[in-house]
Design a protein around this nucleic acid. Structure first.
Length: 501
RNA sequence: GGUCCUGUGGCCGAGUGGCUAGGCAGAGCUCUGCAAAAGCUUCCACAGCGGUUCGAAUCCGCUCGGGACCUCCA
């Protein structure tokens, strides 16, 4: 069974066929590092990380390119005013690259806490000014852009007229007609320079106060937002590559503009499959700066926000996101995240216990019915993922499997119920999926021999007390450890295990 | 105004016309010195009204509600 992905371009699920198997090129729009990432940003990066991981699980050799937008308007809130006052003091001035560095570091930190694999290439817009200028020159030469007062604009109308004839009208990705666009009287910079309201900037002339600026054939300025992705994707993935991903809110105009720019330059639609993740909402509304309802990742991890009842770990958030399908909206609430936290814990404990069991490979199944059920549940992992990455369904199967595992642990089900082969398959696939594909990791305190020794000592003291029916002492140990966040559990086999909360 | 998406039980969420989603929460039972955890059982559902069909949460229409994009936006 082959992988099917929902292609925004065709609005349907299509069989995924790489241009150059086993190689796959994937480009995902990264962050603008002018501020802190919030929960909404986590979704695409986790979603496409899982897609990246799954493609590798399928055996593809993937080049994953995710950019960092570090050019454009760079101002930090609250710092702009000071800047104007202390223009002469270099160190007190707003230094854009300082902001870029700060938020890039923070972003990388968050990505690693989520256990997202680093992309193969993470190019920056400022590192590719030359490529962007070359591309703009080419678009002008072909007659699809014009200069006005040191800025360059893309001629959308001309593009649309010419390329509609080739079946590639402007708006083909987001499914809209130019005529239908809302006729706005919006306050945008230098709007009057444009020949048409739909035209977008390829290069912007920098006003004197704009600090980020580069030389260009059209004077000092900075690149428009859309051109960087076209320049960097074609540089690293070629004129035509396999997958282009990003948030749904980027579909228009960002991706539409990318298509137009690249099509003019390379005469090809840049990507074959366009994948878009949906938004994270909060009380039904999109989480976004303009709605004033964002929860920053640092707040989420620390619990330091009036919206949050507690802190949520990176893995809880990752799991929360995997429990829904990436193309649907996902509603944030404390209740929902708390549910995810508990669910993940239950699943992970079953997984960890089972992964330590030694299995007799040659043993036969004493309960063929159960054996078959387990096999089906495990085999379906691939089927569900092949159906446009249905992570939620895989997790549902895993919960059914963890019930089976827990029953084996509690000896309600014989350990020989399934065959050795099935048991090994289960072990293998749980690991492959939970760790390699879903990218989940155990969050318990790192292995610490001293700590473990101390806890084992307490456990043995408690055991002695229990055997003397000194429940005062045994309960004291258990309760006070619980207050410290260490939970003791008396297991069926007479031993005691511990867990960090 | 245009283009779309969406409405599933207390909450979050899968659902390809016929077969249990799953998780969390609630109730009961088992296990336990007591817990915790786990297991078993159980309660609660497809916005409303029509239509198509032997059969619809799933297709069509209407009504009502929610949301996204058209502007920087993951």
């Amino acid at each position: 069974m082959s992988l099917k992905v929902y292609n925004s371009l065709s609005r349907q699920k299509e069989i995924f066929t790489p241009i150059n198997a086993p190689y796959v090129g994937m480009y995902v729009c990264g962050p603008t590092v002018s501020g802190e990432s919030h929960l909404g940003h986590a979704r695409p990066f986790i979603t496409f990380d899982v897609i990246y991981r799954y493609l590798m699980y399928l055996g593809y050799k993937v080049r994953y390119v995710r950019n960092i937008t570090d050019a454009g308007h760079f101002e930090e809130e609250g710092r702009e005013a000071e800047d104007k006052i202390s223009k002469k003091a270099v160190l007190e001035k707003l230094e854009p690259m300082e902001l870029v560095q700060k938020y890039t570091n923070l972003y990388h930190w968050a990505m690693s806490r989520f256990n997202n694999l680093p992309p193969s290439i993470e190019p920056t817009a400022t590192g590719h000014i030359v490529e962007q200028i070359e591309m703009i020159k080419k678009i002008i030469a072909d007659g699809y852009a014009y200069e006005a007062n040191g800025s360059v604009y893309f001629d959308v109308d001309r593009y649309n007229t010419d390329f509609s004839k080739l079946g590639k009208p402007y708006g083909m990705l987001s499914g809209r007609n130019l005529e239908d666009q809302l006729d706005t009287t919006r306050e945008l910079d230098n709007q009057e320079e444009k020949r048409d309201k739909n035209d977008f900037a390829l290069w912007k002339s920098a006003p004197p106060e704009h600090i980020m600026r580069w030389n260009s054939p059209w004077g000092e300025g900075f690149p428009g937002w859309h051109i960087e992705c076209s320049a960097m994707s074609s540089k690293y993935l070629g004129e035509e590559f396999d997958i282009h991903g990003g948030g749904m809110d980027l579909q228009f105009p960002h991706h539409e503009c990318e298509i137009a720019q690249s099509t003019v330059c390379n005469h090809k639609t840049p990507a074959r499959y366009w994948l878009h993740n949906n938004m994270i909402t909060i009380q039904g509304k999109k989480m976004g700066k303009s709605y004033n309802n964002v929860i920053k990742l640092t707040e989420l991890f620390s619990g330091d926000s009036p919206i949050l009842e507690q802190a949520y770990s990176p893995m809880t958030i990752r799991f929360f996101i995997l429990q829904s399908h990436y193309r649907g909206t996902l509603d944030f609430s404390n209740e929902a995240l708390q549910a995810s936290e508990k669910a993940l814990k239950r699943l992970w404990e079953a997984y960890e216990w089972y992964s330590k069991q030694s299995i007799n490979e040659g043993s036969a199944a004493s309960d063929p019915g159960l054996n078959e059920k387990v096999q089906k549940l495990v085999t379906e992992f691939d089927e569900f993922m092949n159906d446009d990455f249905s992570t939620a369904k895989v997790l549902a199967n895993m919960f059914e499997l963890s019930s089976v595992i827990n029953s084996i642990k509690d000896k309600h089900i014989s350990e020989n119920a399934m065959s050795g082969q099935t048991a090994l398959l289960l072990q293998k696939q749980l690991k492959a999926y939970l760790e390699d594909v879903f990218g989940l990791i155990g969050e318990r305190a790192s292995d610490n021999g001293q700590l473990d020794g101390i806890l084992q000592l307490l456990i043995s003291i408690r055991k002695d007390a229990k055997s003397k029916k000194d429940f005062m002492t045994s309960d004291k140990i258990r309760n006070e450890l619980a207050a410290l966040g260490v939970q003791l559990k008396d297991e069926k086999d007479g031993g005691t295990s511990y867990n960090f909360n």
